[in-house]
Every structure is written in structure tokens, then in C-alpha cells.
């Protein structure tokens, strides 16, 4: 048990180190020196030297890299070149809104997907086709477009929800729905397919013969089997939610990591990008650990091993 946890921790350290190193190398391999980019359309003698000295860009790349690693170990992520504020402050202030949005979007997606699958798997042809069509539409609609449509209907016309603002629950309804629908569409398709396969299995007939009601069969027995392939999609789901959050934040004018990250990549704001990469690596490791535990909860056969 402990050895597994320790090896897991070591793996996550390696993942974090590798991803930060890769990001560091990638950012420095991009064309253009950082001091030239930071100078922008500004030009006077000594400007580039001053910028390079300010951010320590005048040192060799290995020296910058080592310095960076040492500083991270001390919990110091440096200062953003462009925003000129401590990275921990920038990322810290933007983390919660994104997590909130992604979490709510994820939960909503799972609820919608399970409800759709439970209601339509193995039922009448027409209801299945309608549900399947809707799922396809949601899964293939870009998040951006969906957000605008929802805004037009529920904010600009009906005026039920505000465009944005971090105040009150009303402001998160539309963004989380925007994020949830495409994910829910795909998840529901996978779930229904798996449930329909399971419904054909002999054990379902056995359970039915005991006189168990249809809803219980579906919710307690069939869903459990069908969840396994859906959980496998979990890694993809987390990536999708975080990526979708970038677009959603932009459309709704919400605070969050998305806008900050996009801006940082475009302007070669190395300290911010590296902090976000580190965070993403951490989320990835944490999520895959959680998913492993989830497998155990869903499938008793795995626990015995």
C-alpha cells in the first residue's frame, strides 16, 4: 500500500519536472528573444540590455534553468514579465474561478449524461434518436458559439442571468452550462452504448427474473458496468474542461487562468507559463490518481486483486 503511494508521488514529481523542463525548452526554442518581444515597438539605446538585466535574461540558458528550478523548490515562482506582478499572486487570484467553473461544468456534464443515458438506453427508437441527435449537436458545437447562443437567449433576451460578474450564483449558471453541454453530449453517447451492451447480458435477465424494478436494474446494476468505459474518458474530460474554460472565460468576461495563460504564451511570459504548466501537471497527476480510486469503488472485481 505505502510503496504504491510513494511510487505514485515519485512519478508525479518526475511528471512535474519533465513537463516544466519541456515547457522551458519549448518557450526558449520559439523564435524571437524575450527582450525583443518585451521591447515591442519601443526602441532606444540600452533598452534591451536594461530589460535583459531586469529579468536575468543576460545569463546563459542552463544558468537560467537551474536558477528557475532552485527558486521553484523554495516556492518562489518569480515575477511576470508582462504583468509585472508576482506569479503566485497572478495565478493564485485566477485559480479559484477556473476550478469553480471547471468543477461545476464537470459535475453538470456527468449529471446530464447519466440522466440521458438512464432514460434512453435500450428504450424506444424515437426517443433514442432524438437524444442521440441532441448529443451529437452539443458534442460538435464549439464552446464559443454555444456560449454566445446561451447568452443571447437567457441573458440578452430573457434577462434571467447576467453576462458575467463573480457575484452570486446567477453569474456561473450560463458559463458552467456552456462548458457542460459538449462534454455531456459525448459522455452520454459512450454511456448509452455501454449500457445497451450491458442490458443484453445474461445477468440482467437473472436480476429481472427476481422481480427487481427496471429503474433499480438500470441505476444499480447496469450503470455500474457502463461507468467503466466512461471513467476511462475522465482524463480527456479534464483536459477538455480546462481547455473549454479558456474560451468560456473569454466569452463571458470571467476571471480565470485561461485568459492569463493565453496572454502569457503569446507574449513569451515565461514565469507565468511555467507556473501554469506545473499546475496543469499537478492537476493531471491528482486526477489520474482519483480516477484509479474511482475504478476500485465502481468495480469490486478490481478490489480483490
Amino acid at each position: 500500500m505505502w510503496s504504491r503511494i510513494i511510487s505514485r508521488l515519485l512519478t508525479s514529481l518526475v511528471v512535474a519536472w519533465a513537463s516544466v523542463t519541456a515547457a522551458f525548452l519549448a518557450l526558449h526554442a520559439l523564435p524571437g528573444r524575450i527582450q525583443d518581444i518585451l521591447a515591442g515597438d519601443l526602441e532606444y539605446p540600452g533598452l534591451r540590455e536594461a530589460i535583459a538585466a531586469e529579468w536575468g535574461l543576460d545569463r546563459s540558458l542552463p544558468a537560467q534553468y537551474l536558477d528557475f528550478l532552485l527558486r521553484i523548490l523554495q516556492g518562489d515562482f518569480g515575477t511576470s514579465y508582462v504583468l509585472r506582478q508576482p506569479v503566485t499572486e497572478v495565478v493564485g487570484s485566477q485559480l479559484m474561478p477556473t476550478v469553480q467553473l471547471a468543477l461545476l461544468g464537470g459535475i453538470l456534464a456527468v449529471i446530464i449524461a447519466i440522466a440521458l443515458a438512464l432514460l434512453t438506453a435500450g428504450r424506444g427508437r424515437i426517443s433514442r434518436q432524438i437524444a442521440s441527435f441532441l448529443e451529437l449537436v452539443f458534442a460538435s458545437t464549439p464552446v464559443f458559439w454555444l456560449g454566445i447562443l446561451l447568452l443571447m437567449a437567457f441573458s440578452f433576451t430573457l434577462r434571467w442571468f447576467p453576462v458575467s460578474g463573480a457575484s452570486g450564483w446567477q453569474s456561473i449558471v450560463l458559463p458552467s452550462l456552456t462548458l457542460a453541454l459538449p462534454t455531456a453530449g459525448l459522455l452520454a453517447q459512450v454511456l448509452r452504448e455501454a449500457m445497451e451492451k450491458t442490458l443484453d447480458q445474461p445477468f440482467v435477465t437473472t436480476v429481472r427474473s427476481r422481480g427487481v424494478g427496471e429503474l433499480v436494474i438500470r441505476a444499480r446494476h447496469v450503470l455500474r458496468h457502463a461507468l467503466l468505459p466512461a471513467v476511462t474518458l475522465g482524463g480527456w474530460l479534464i483536459g477538455g474542461l480546462l481547455g473549454g474554460a479558456v474560451i468560456t472565460e473569454k466569452v463571458f468576461g470571467r476571471p480565470g487562468l485561461g485568459t492569463v495563460t493565453l496572454g502569457a504564451v503569446l507574449t513569451h511570459d515565461v514565469p507565468v507559463v511555467l507556473a501554469v504548466v506545473l499546475l496543469a501537471a499537478f492537476i493531471h497527476v491528482a486526477a489520474s490518481t482519483l480516477l484509479d480510486i474511482l475504478y476500485l469503488l465502481i468495480d469490486p472485481r478490481l478490489r480483490a486483486q
Binding site: I148, L151, M152, S155, F156, T157, R159, P162, V163, S164, G165, K250, V251, F252, G253, T259
Partner: peptide
């Protein structure tokens, strides 16, 4: 000042009085 990067969202926010 509310930062609304999307032009259509800005316009909609004004037409709906937000």
C-alpha cells in the same frame, strides 16, 4: 470598468441594460 473582450457580448450587455 467591466472587461468584456467579445464585441457581441459587449453589444448584448448594453442592449439588455447590463
Amino acid at each position: 470598468l467591466r472587461f468584456l473582450p467579445e464585441a457581441a457580448v459587449r453589444a448584448g450587455a448594453l442592449t439588455s441594460g447590463q
